[in-house]
C-alpha cells in the first residue's frame, strides 16, 4: 500500500514563560492511501496539535512530516498553503464557514483558489449530495448547526483532496444530527476514495474507522484496529 502521510520523530514544544512545554514527544506513524484513521485522546493530550502538524498548518519543533511524498518541513507557509489546497480537505468542529459567503460560495472557495473549471456546477453537485442544493444561497447564519457542517463536508470534498482531516466533526452537534453527518462523511469518503483522519474523543465515531491512534500526554500509547472491525 502507498503511504500518503508519514510522521517521523515529530516533537512539538512551546515556550511558555520561563519553561518549555512539550506537547508532542517523538511521534512516529504513517498512514496509507484510502485508510480511515482516528486520533483519540483526552483533552490536552496533543491530538489537535498533531492534526495541525499533519495538515501542514504548523511546523514541528523537530522531526519530519511528509504528505503525499512532499516534505512539509522545508516549505514556507505559502508553499504549505499550496499543498493544502492541492491535497488536503478540512472539517472543523465549529464548521468554520466564512460568514459573509453563501453556502454555495463557501463550497466554491477551494476550487476558485486552485483555478478550477466548472466551479459552480461542481459545488452545486456537492451541495446536492449533502442535501442542501435548495439552501445554496443561504448564509451560514441562516443554517442550523447540522446544515452548516454538511456545507463544510461539501467544501472539504470540493477540491477532491487526497487526505481529509476532520477535527471533532460532531463536537458541536446533537446525537441525531451527528449520526447523519457521520454517515454522510463516510459515504462521501468512500465515493471519493479519500484518506480520512479524524481527531475525536468520541469512541463510537473512532470505532467506525479502520485504525485508532491513541495519544496521551503527547505520546502515542496505542495504535490499533477497532475491536469489532
Amino acid at each position: 500500500m502507498e503511504t500518503i502521510l508519514e510522521i517521523k520523530n515529530v516533537s512539538k514544544a512551546y515556550q511558555s514563560a520561563n519553561h518549555e512545554l512539550t506537547v508532542l514527544d517523538n511521534i512516529n506513524f504513517s498512514i496509507n492511501k484510502g485508510d480511515t484513521v482516528a486520533i483519540t485522546g483526552p483533552s490536552g493530550s496533543g491530538k489537535t496539535t498533531l492534526l495541525g502538524l499533519c495538515a501542514g498548518l504548523d511546523r514541528a519543533t523537530s522531526g519530519s512530516v511528509t504528505l503525499n511524498n512532499i516534505a512539509l518541513d522545508n516549505l514556507n507557509e505559502d508553499q504549505r498553503a499550496a499543498v493544502r489546497n492541492q491535497y488536503v480537505g478540512f472539517i472543523f468542529q465549529n464548521f468554520q464557514l466564512l460568514p459573509t459567503l453563501t453556502a454555495l460560495e463557501n463550497v466554491m472557495v477551494p476550487l476558485e483558489l486552485r483555478g478550477a473549471k466548472n466551479i459552480k456546477a461542481t459545488a452545486m453537485t456537492l451541495l446536492d449530495k449533502v442535501g442542501l442544493a435548495d439552501r445554496s444561497h443561504h448564509y451560514p447564519v441562516q443554517l442550523s448547526g447540522g446544515e452548516q457542517q454538511r456545507v463544510s463536508l461539501a467544501r472539504a470534498f470540493s477540491n477532491q483532496p487526497a487526505l481529509l482531516f476532520a477535527d471533532e466533526p460532531t463536537g458541536n452537534l446533537d446525537a441525531e444530527t451527528s449520526e447523519k453527518v457521520i454517515k454522510l462523511l463516510f459515504d462521501l469518503n468512500k465515493d471519493a476514495g479519500t484518506t480520512l483522519v479524524i481527531v475525536t474523543h468520541d469512541l463510537e465515531l473512532a470505532a467506525r474507522t479502520n485504525r485508532i491512534i491513541k495519544i496521551k500526554g503527547g505520546i502515542i500509547i496505542a495504535d490499533e484496529s477497532p475491536k469489532y472491525v
Binding site: A55, E77, D78, A81, A82, R84, Q86, Q96, L113
Partner: peptide
C-alpha cells in the same frame, strides 16, 4: 481572524 485562518487552511496564500 477566524475567516482569514479558514481561508489559509483552504490554501489561500498570505499575500
Amino acid at each position: 481572524l477566524s475567516t482569514i485562518a479558514t481561508l489559509r487552511c483552504l490554501g489561500l496564500k498570505a499575500r
